[in-house]
Design a protein around this nucleic acid. Structure first.
Lengths: 128, 128
DNA sequence: CGACGCTCTTACGTAAAAGTCAAATAACGC
DNA sequence: GCGTTATTTGACTTTTACGTAAGAGCGTCG
């Protein structure tokens, strides 16, 4: 496990631009160290980037991703705070289950598309 | 099953604006009938809207949703065309499986968050 | 008949998430 | 040490997916 990654290393690994990583820093999603002005990304920062991109793939906005990330690093706060986190986590989980159902439905439809195409191809081979 | 829906009926059912439905028509995603200038949405149009919104929940862009929709209504074309559709459907399915994995991972992490919070709450009750 | 609600088109505005470009530093390879 | 490459900040631009407002046309309810 590397100590530090340069910004370019991460852009290559994840297929994103430096602008994107700086944007995520401006948005408060990551906080890489600095040596002088140069950013040094720790493994923990790299993991965060991974989680951010995963959130993007699922269609979450930066604001939503920020909420999720903040739950991960929520400190052992007071009772009300803990309950609030539990609630928010529950909501997000419900949302994710909905997305999962959407995926299952779309997958089923695409399988039908493929089968229909294969069937039509078979017909064409027989007919011709 | 209704014959036709007005634009406002659909906006109420789906919680979207008339602007959004007209935008989807401009983008070629739906093609409601017309009586004069007024749009008449058939059940098939309503189904399409459902599929569009499902795509949006999954983070697909309008362009991607258009691709998916076009696969659904692909006519029994020629062999090359059919193969192309099968390929594209395969790609989308792979993408969806990735999203599903992303969801499973995020769900697992959120469950950990919840458990950590519950554990901490239990501690607080004991300690206090 | 008049107000009201629904609908239409056209056009400009906007928020989110970066892309792009410039100019200045900093770090690296030899 | 010096040229090349990487990195920084800052500002402006772009794309997507609508929001919003203006102005006008129908149908109907009282």
């Amino acid at each position: 496990m590397r100590d530090y990654y340069t910004i370019t290393e991460l852009t290559r690994e994840f297929g994103i631009s430096t602008r994107t990583l700086r944007f995520y820093e401006d948005e408060g999603l990551i906080h890489p160290l600095r040596r002088g002005r140069t950013r040094l990304f720790r493994p923990a920062d790299r993991l965060l980037v991974k989680q951010i991109l995963r959130g993007k793939r699922l269609g979450f906005s930066i604001a939503e991703i920020r909420e999720i990330i903040q739950m991960y690093k929520a400190p052992p706060g007071e009772v009300g705070q803990l309950r609030a986190i539990i609630n928010k986590a529950g909501e997000k989980r419900e949302e994710l289950r909905q997305k999962r159902k959407d995926i299952e439905d779309t997958l089923a439809e695409l399988e039908q598309v493929e089968e229909a195409c294969l069937g039509r191809l078979a017909e064409l081979r027989v007919t011709s």
